[in-house]
Amino acid sequence: MARRHLSTDEQALWSALARTVRPLRPQNRAPVAVPVVTIDPPAKKGVAPPPARLAPPPAPVRTPAAVLDTGWEKRIRNGAVSPEMSIDLHGHSLSAAHARLHQALGAALAQGVRVILVVTGKPPKGALSDSAARRGAIRAEIGHWLETSAHADRIASVRVAHPRHGGDGALYLILRRKK
């Protein structure tokens, strides 16, 4: 079946409808780009209008995996993962910790490091019941920092460290291999 092209009125209605749609779970979905359609002015009678041109779709965004293959999972569970690089963020302000994390991630990728140990620090004993205070300010923000990082597509997984490497006060960043 041949596809027909939308008229100018139909395209305007579709665009208005597409702007009102909101995802049910925006935190779990990759952003969806609405195709850009170029509409030329109406042609003379008897002349067929040229087909609409669509912009190419954006490249898919790679996100960290919740579960790695069984070999990695076993090594993490047993504490057999040996970080090739570590960065200690606890005791820093949020802005300083963010800058250090970004700098360390760039250096690790340049050196071909696969596992980084990020020490965020444990929250103080008897912290308030508020979840951000219970987790610590840096720990509460680090997920967002990694998602919005320029290197986000190079992170294969983020996992809580084994107790010998800091347990709840540290994370493993497992980086993807170079292509």
Rank of each mutant, 00 (worst) to 15 (best):
L89I: 00
K44P: 07
L171P: 00
V37W: 07
S129I: 07
Q103V: 10
A97L: 03
A137R: 05
A16W: 00
T20E: 15
I174S: 10
P64G: 13
G126D: 13
G143N: 11
T120P: 07
G136Q: 06
A16D: 04
R53L: 09
A2P: 05
S86T: 05
I142E: 07
R22W: 12
R154S: 11
R139Q: 08
A170C: 12
R77E: 10
L54Q: 08
T8R: 10
V67I: 09
H5I: 12
R176N: 14
W14D: 09
R134Y: 06
V118T: 09
T148Y: 09
K125M: 13
L24R: 11
S7Y: 11
M1C: 02
L117G: 00
D168A: 10
G46R: 09
V37T: 09
I142V: 10
P50R: 06
V32P: 15
A18S: 09
H165W: 06
A127R: 03
L89T: 00
P26T: 08
N28S: 14
V67Q: 14
H165T: 00
G121N: 11
P57S: 01
N78G: 11
S95N: 12
A133I: 08
S93T: 12
L94M: 02
W72G: 11
T8N: 11
M1F: 08
R139H: 13
V21M: 07
I116E: 00
N28M: 15
L54G: 14
P35G: 04
G169M: 04
R62W: 05
G71M: 06
K179H: 02
K179R: 06
P50L: 05
H162L: 10
V113Y: 01
V115G: 01
T148R: 13
H5N: 12
Q27S: 12
A80N: 12
D153I: 04
P124A: 11
L101P: 00
W72D: 12
H165M: 05
A30E: 14
L109C: 01
L171Y: 01
L54F: 15
